[in-house]
């Protein structure tokens, strides 16, 4: 177990090293553009050269990469040209906001998808099963920005019950709880279907096992068979899938944050990319990959603990 964990940790470090080099290299082919961007298109070549020297951009790529990596590791993420502050001053707030949104969405999505998945999977092929299965395919197929448009036209424009933006700003006249309803709804709708199908598939499989037949034959009620025998075993396989949704919710919610003007991590990444703010994009990408790889490892470890029959070597 410990050996497995250490091995995964080593592979995480290796992945992060390669990813950091890729993220750095992606924006380093033409450092000259940086000078033009800062000084504007009417600057002279001489001015640009001087700025490049000042910024240290005339040095070889590997030297600058090592320096950048050193800075990142010591907590200096560089200066954001878009927000005009050190990246450190903005990224943690934004991560916090996204984590807040993700936690609420997660708390709604997980119980709901487990309930739907179990209901569908306990009687394979029933009417309820077909309805939930097809319904989950449909909700997962609606792009987030489209469901944002649909929900906004009903609840914001049609009924006027909810605000169309979630800026977390109290001054807009809507309580924060009301602002969060639509973003959470869009995330849950898009993400729900996949988890429902995983839980359903696992449940269907468990229901064919001999111990379920034994439980039925010894006269237990259907309710007890589901709750006491099937449920726990059906939850092992979807565990990893559910954990991986944390990854989607923290790094993949760019669209939802853009739709509702939510001041989160994804929106920061998008805005900085649109305005060529390299330092912020690099820092945000590294974080995104770190979150993604860590949740994968956490998923593997949790799966191993839940299912004693599986031991990775």
């Amino acid at each position: 177990m410990l050996a497995f964990f250490l091995k995964r940790l080593a592979s995480l470090l290796f992945t992060m090293l390669v990813v950091s080099a890729l993220v750095f290299a992606a924006f380093e082919f033409t450092p000259g553009q940086v000078a033009t961007k800062i000084l504007g298109p009417f600057s002279t070549q001489d001015q640009r050269d001087r700025l490049m020297e000042e910024l240290g951009l005339h040095r070889p790529v590997y030297e600058r990469y090592l320096e950048w990596l050193g800075n990142v590791l010591t907590g200096d993420l560089g200066y954001s040209t878009l927000y005009k502050v050190p990246v450190n001053d903005i990224i943690w707030d934004r991560l916090g906001n996204t984590l807040f949104l993700a936690m609420i969405a997660f708390a709604v999505m997980v119980p709901l998808s487990i309930l739907l998945g179990i209901s569908a999977g306990m009687r394979e092929g029933s009417k309820l099963d077909r309805t939930i299965s097809v319904g989950s395919i449909v909700t997962t197929s609606v792009p987030e920005f489209a469901s944002g448009v649909f929900l906004a036209s009903i609840f914001v424009i049609g009924l006027g019950w909810l605000p169309g933006t979630a800026t977390l700003d109290q001054g807009a006249g809507w309580p924060i709880a009301a602002q969060l309803v639509l973003p959470v709804a869009v995330i849950v709708l898009y993400d729900l279907g996949y988890v429902v199908r995983m839980v359903r598939a696992s449940m269907v499989e468990v229901m064919t096992r001999p111990y379920i037949r034994t439980a039925v034959l010894k006269g237990l009620t259907f309710r007890d068979v589901i709750l006491k025998h099937a449920l726990r075993n059906a939850m092992i396989a979807p565990f990893t899938v559910i954990l991986l949704q944390i990854n989607y919710m923290i790094t993949g919610v760019v669209v939802v944050e853009a739709v509702f003007a939510y001041p989160g991590f994804g929106r920061m990444l998008l805005d900085s990319a649109l305005s060529q703010d390299v330092a912020t994009v690099q820092a945000a990408s590294l974080f995104a990959v770190l979150v993604s790889v860590s949740t994968q490892i956490a998923g593997d470890l949790g799966y191993m603990m839940l299912n004693p029959r599986i031991r990775f070597s």
Binding site: Y248, T251, G252, V254, G266, A273, A288, V289, V293
Partner: peptide
């Protein structure tokens, strides 16, 4: 290991 949307943003940017 990259979330897809992050890769899209980097490549297009």
């Amino acid at each position: 290991s990259f979330p897809a949307i992050v890769l899209y943003i980097i490549v297009i940017m």
